[in-house]
Amino acid sequence: MKLLKLLLAATLVLGVSATTLSASSVKGQKLFIKKFKKPCGMNGAKFAAKHSQDEWQEIMDNGNFKKEFVKICPNVKESDIKDSWVEHIFEFSYDYANDSGNVPSC
């Protein structure tokens, strides 16, 4: 009985953590659609496909995500991108990069 409870608890923890990880990408997609699709003149799929996952990771690690965003979308100013959104939009961009094999629905 203890083993069953332990397995159930482990399954619950893994399920919640997996949902949390995907939530930031989903939130990033929603933010892109709501705030940046029109000013960028492209959908999220085209935006994310501008770089590979390694390139997106390097841009983020170097602290240049906002600068790269503005380079891709010149109609957007760095001040338009809230700091609290950066991680979510990065997760979205990384998950749907040109080498990821994933296609977003936006």
Rank of each mutant, 00 (worst) to 15 (best):
N102I: 01
N98E: 10
L4F: 13
K38E: 15
F36S: 00
W56E: 03
L14M: 14
S93F: 00
E68F: 02
L7N: 03
D54Q: 06
I89R: 05
C106S: 14
V70G: 03
I81V: 12
G41Q: 08
S22E: 14
T19W: 15
N75D: 15
K82H: 09
D83H: 09
A10R: 05
H88A: 15
M60R: 10
I59H: 00
L21N: 09
V103L: 09
Q53L: 06
K34G: 10
L12K: 04
L7R: 09
A9Y: 08
L31D: 01
F69A: 03
H51K: 15
Y94W: 12
N102P: 00
L31E: 04
V70T: 11
A97P: 05
S25A: 15
L8T: 08
V16R: 05
G101N: 10
K30C: 02
A97S: 14
M42E: 09
V86W: 00
W85C: 01
A97G: 06
P104F: 04
D83P: 00
K30A: 13
F65W: 05
G101M: 05
F69M: 09
I59F: 00
K50G: 06
F47Y: 11
A45C: 05
M1P: 10
I89A: 04
Y96H: 14
Q29I: 02
A10N: 07
S25I: 08
M60H: 10
N64W: 01
V16D: 07
S100V: 03
N98V: 12
V13S: 03
P39A: 08
L21C: 09
G101C: 03
A48L: 02
I72W: 02
S25G: 15
G101R: 08
I59E: 00
N102A: 10
L21M: 13
A49V: 02
N64K: 15
I81R: 00
Q57N: 11
V16K: 07
C106F: 10
N102S: 08
I72M: 07
L3A: 14
K27W: 07
T19E: 08
F90P: 00
T20K: 04
F65R: 03
E55I: 01
N62E: 15
K50E: 13
D61W: 04
A18S: 14
D80M: 04
K37S: 11
T11K: 05
D61A: 11
F92D: 06
D61M: 06
F65C: 00
L6E: 13
E78D: 07
G41L: 03
N43G: 13
L14Y: 10
S84W: 02
E78W: 01
W56H: 07
P104E: 11
C106R: 13
K82F: 07
W85S: 04
K77H: 07
S52V: 01
S22Q: 12
P39V: 06
E91H: 06
N98S: 15
D83A: 13
I72V: 13
A9F: 15
S79W: 01
K66I: 10
E87T: 15
K82T: 07
N62P: 02
N43Y: 08
K50F: 04
S79M: 06
I81Y: 05
A23V: 04
K77Q: 10
V16S: 05
P39H: 07
